[in-house]
Design a protein around this nucleic acid. Structure first.
Lengths: 154, 154
DNA sequence: AGGAAATCGTTGCACTTGAGACGATGACAC
DNA sequence: GTGTCATCGTCTCAAGTGCAACGATTTCCT
């Protein structure tokens, strides 16, 4: 017979339900939501998610540096740098050195980029509206919960 | 003077707040939550997020195939295949052909893998408990909202 | 039985990613 | 000024990724 407490490896592991594990669950939903819109702007304009974030921030902040992107839209600096370079190469953004601090770059939308965003932003707004309809009247709670989770230092 | 309606590119773009855009927001929170725990098991055991998901599923399903992983824990099959291979190489899982259908592989935890999970699962359970405490009594609403967003075909 | 079609896991390929090193620039103390 | 330190953006390198193609198997249909 075996002892009741068995420290060796043949012992049963504690139950664990990945489907209820918040890091997993939130990540999967995030990928699902992002992919839904990204599929469209990737097929139509060849834009990646990182490039989309850069464009959105440019559309509402005007002129930004790589470091601003890093802090405001959660892109690591190498990722932000490469996304900005691609967008500049495609002609969607202009990239010039900042004259008052020549370590920085000034990124801003070109005419072509503004024209792109004139197409993209209404699409995204409609998508957001659709998601909010799905969530319904618990949107406030959802946002509050996400905020609290985000503030938590883990 | 300029006409009121101006179709050219110099027109202002619609306002758009990325910080309230659900795909962005949910994704960022998901990364934040995942990174909080992943940092620990990566530093301590050299395990990636994909490998973690494989291990968890093995811990509670016993024996699974690559295809099961693909469907149950949202890993593309090449990602699942490589994660399983790495874990097999490290000795955490055993990988043998399925005798009743030789297209499939049978993955299961080795003794070493079970021992690893005996350390990891309590850690994850504590982490989950901490997150649930942060969310508080709106946990039900949060889960329901995530479910509804997940079911939506986008 | 026998051939077409579907399924499974792996791999080759081109691309992306994260982490750190690096040169260039600026801020600060003395 | 001058030296030290911090900051910014890019680049390099190894590792990871998505996708499609592939061989091996099984299933289905007749």
């Amino acid at each position: 017979m075996r002892a009741a407490a068995d420290p060796d490896v043949s012992k049963d592991l504690p139950d664990f339900d990945l489907a209820r594990f918040l890091p997993y669950r939130v990540t999967v939903v995030g990928e699902h939501l992002s992919a839904g819109l990204a599929r469209r702007y990737r097929a139509e304009f060849g834009i990646s998610v990182a490039e989309w974030r850069v464009l959105v921030h440019l559309a509402d902040a005007g002129t930004v540096s790589i470091r601003d992107l890093e802090r405001r839209v959660h892109l690591e600096k190498s990722k932000a740098s490469r996304a900005a370079s691609r967008l500049a190469r495609e002609g969607y953004v202009t990239k010039v050195p900042d004259l008052s601090d020549r370590r920085l770059v000034c990124l801003s939308l070109s005419d072509r980029g503004r024209s792109l965003m004139a197409d993209l932003l209404p699409l995204a707004a409609a998508y957001q509206a659709r998601l909010e309809a799905v969530v319904g009247n618990s949107l406030r709670d959802l946002e509050a919960a996400l905020d609290r989770l985000m503030q938590e230092d883990l």
